[in-house]
Design a protein around this nucleic acid. Sequence first.
DNA 1: TCCATATTCAATAAATTTATTGAGTGCTTG
DNA 2: CAAGCACTCAATAAATTTATTGAATATGGA
Lengths: 223, 223
Amino acid sequence: MDPTRKRRFKQQLFDQFARLGKALANNHRLELIELLAQGERSVESLAREADLSVANASQHLQVLHAAGLVEQRREGVFAYYSLTPGAFPLWQALRDLARQRLAEVERLVESTLEREGEPVGLEELARRLEHGDAVLLDVRPLREFEAGHIPGAIPAPVAELEALLPSLPRGVEVIAYCRGPYCTFADEAVELLRARGFNARRLELGLPDWRAAGYPVRQGVGA
Amino acid sequence: MDPTRKRRFKQQLFDQFARLGKALANNHRLELIELLAQGERSVESLAREADLSVANASQHLQVLHAAGLVEQRREGVFAYYSLTPGAFPLWQALRDLARQRLAEVERLVESTLEREGEPVGLEELARRLEHGDAVLLDVRPLREFEAGHIPGAIPAPVAELEALLPSLPRGVEVIAYCRGPYCTFADEAVELLRARGFNARRLELGLPDWRAAGYPVRQGVGA
DNA sequence: TCCATATTCAATAAATTTATTGAGTGCTTG
DNA sequence: CAAGCACTCAATAAATTTATTGAATATGGA
């Protein structure tokens, strides 16, 4: 094969790969991906949670769209964005390699969050659910619970968790999960639960990880 | 948790993730990763193959190093770089998602390479090797064969393949593999082999993919 | 029809990334 | 110890990315 032609091919090919890489090269876009991994959301809602102006969020979403990482659905005046199939595993790989290779990640987590004890792994949770010897709380905002949750989980947004405590059984361990390994909802929930005398731990990972591992996910309202 | 504190945590956390993302945001760096996936190499050698100046290659390697994707070993006057554990799966995920979501990738491959027939998958290759009903050629440069190859493969750099043809058996299918799904060495080998009357196909993926799938890899010289 | 709202677009300035250039460092060899 | 080599460093200009701003578009309801 003609070397010039071969070089041009590689150049163009890796330009394409870099298109995708460039989409991952910004903290705000990665945060949007993490939010979208929980289910589709409107621009304004994403902007508010990621602390961006609406115009800026819209631009970042367009970059993600051009890279094939998100898709858009329009409903009336709203634009709902969601992750494309396959986008989550890439984000997961990046997130996990960052934890493994960049010591600063671990340092940040340890210095900011006061996590105590070992978290529950996906496999262990699956076993516990089968045995029925644990109560599972989904402590994400209700909208995300409705978009997809672990079967058997109780919707319990952290803000409303307090009101829910009296209805929880005291004999078994309470397990709380949220968006992912760096989401603090579950940590806050565990802190509150322990303060009230519950035996509580957080799930190590989040709902998207549960789904990606091949475990079942249920949609809709109610526990 | 104090919302300001929480936001700062997320900001810093996603800044770290973006550190890694930014390292993937450049075509030349991705090409360096692909080359390093075949085994360690010196700066000068990488620069030559990726068509970069030595200084520029060195800078890109430092960016990859800062992101934890590569590590360095010094030997005399040479600096040998290699991928860190876990770096390849991330590159693999990005590469595969790009193929899946960016139509331009497929278009480029089809318009540039004249691939005919279906390639051999990893599983099929493993089966064929067990049965012994195929000849396997590693058509990468010898240095890469020595750094790691599929057990039973014959070293056969494309440039020297012609001289090797007479010694190949004619009854069985010949399978050629190289660096990865977009590496053209195997395509060139298959083209030559078919022109000479051999029954030949390429492996769909490359050696790093074989290794990452958990199959054994052998180091050193000789078949 | 008019208005409010959600989103996108376009223009701009600031910040960051990139390739190039030439000098600097350190090791090995004659 | 001088020279050659592999690599890194530092400075620079060009290119790209980013956030902000205000205007434009489009939809649904008053």
